[in-house]
C-alpha cells in the first residue's frame, strides 16, 4: 500500500477513529489525537501485512485499541484522573445542558474498565455489530455481550441526570 492510498483510507476513517479514541480517553482530545496519529503510523508500517481479509476500519480500530492499551500501561494512574484535566472535548455550541451531559458521560466512562469502555464506545458511538466489536477487541462475541451488559449497569449507576 502506498502512502497516498493509505492517506485516502485515513481521510474517510479519521473521524470515527478519533471519536472512538476520544471516548476511550474520556474527552481528552489532545491525547485522543496523539493516539490516533500513533495508531496510523503503526498501521502504515504494518500495511504490507494487511491483506484485505478484514475490513480496513476493523483492522485500524484494533490497532488503535492496542495503542490505547499500551499508553494506559505506560502512563501513571494519577495522571489519568479526569478531575485533573483542564478541558474536556465538549460540543462547540457549549450549552450548559450539553456540557453537563458530556461531563457526566466522560466521568462515567473514566470509571469503567477498558474492555467495557471500548465495547460501549464501539456499540453506541460507532454503531458496530457485536461481531465487529469482538474482532476489534479480540475477544469472543459472548464476552462482548457480557462487557456491554456489565458496562450498561455500571453506567446506569454512575450517570446522574
Amino acid at each position: 500500500m502506498t502512502s497516498e492510498e493509505f492517506i485516502g483510507y485515513v481521510k474517510t476513517e479519521q473521524e470515527p477513529l478519533r471519536r472512538f479514541l476520544l471516548a476511550l480517553c474520556c474527552g481528552n482530545a489532545a491525547d485522543a489525537d496523539d493516539l490516533a496519529q500513533e495508531a496510523l503510523v503503526r498501521a502504515y508500517v504494518a500495511s504490507d501485512s494487511f491483506r484485505g481479509a478484514a475490513k480496513f476500519r476493523t483492522w485500524l480500530f484494533r490497532i488503535a485499541y492496542n495503542c490505547y492499551i499500551d499508553s494506559r500501561r505506560k502512563s501513571r494512574p494519577e495522571q489519568d484522573s479526569i478531575e485533573g484535566r483542564e478541558a474536556l472535548a465538549v460540543p462547540s455550541e457549549d450549552a450548559t445542558d450539553a456540557s453537563f451531559r458530556y461531563q457526566q458521560l466522560y466521568q462515567a466512562l473514566d470509571r469503567l474498565p477498558e474492555k467495557e469502555k471500548a465495547a460501549i464506545a464501539l456499540f453506541y458511538f460507532e454503531d458496530r455489530s457485536i461481531k465487529e466489536i469482538a474482532s476489534i477487541l479480540q475477544i469472543p462475541s459472548g464476552t462482548v455481550k457480557y462487557h456491554l451488559s456489565v458496562g450498561r449497569n455500571h453506567l446506569k449507576e454512575y450517570i446522574r441526570l
Binding site: 472535548a89 458521560l105 446506569k156
Partner: peptide
C-alpha cells in the same frame, strides 16, 4: 441510558 448514549456521542 440508550437514549442518553445515542444523544451524547462524542463529537470530534
Amino acid at each position: 441510558l440508550d437514549i442518553f448514549l445515542r444523544n451524547t456521542r462524542p463529537e470530534v
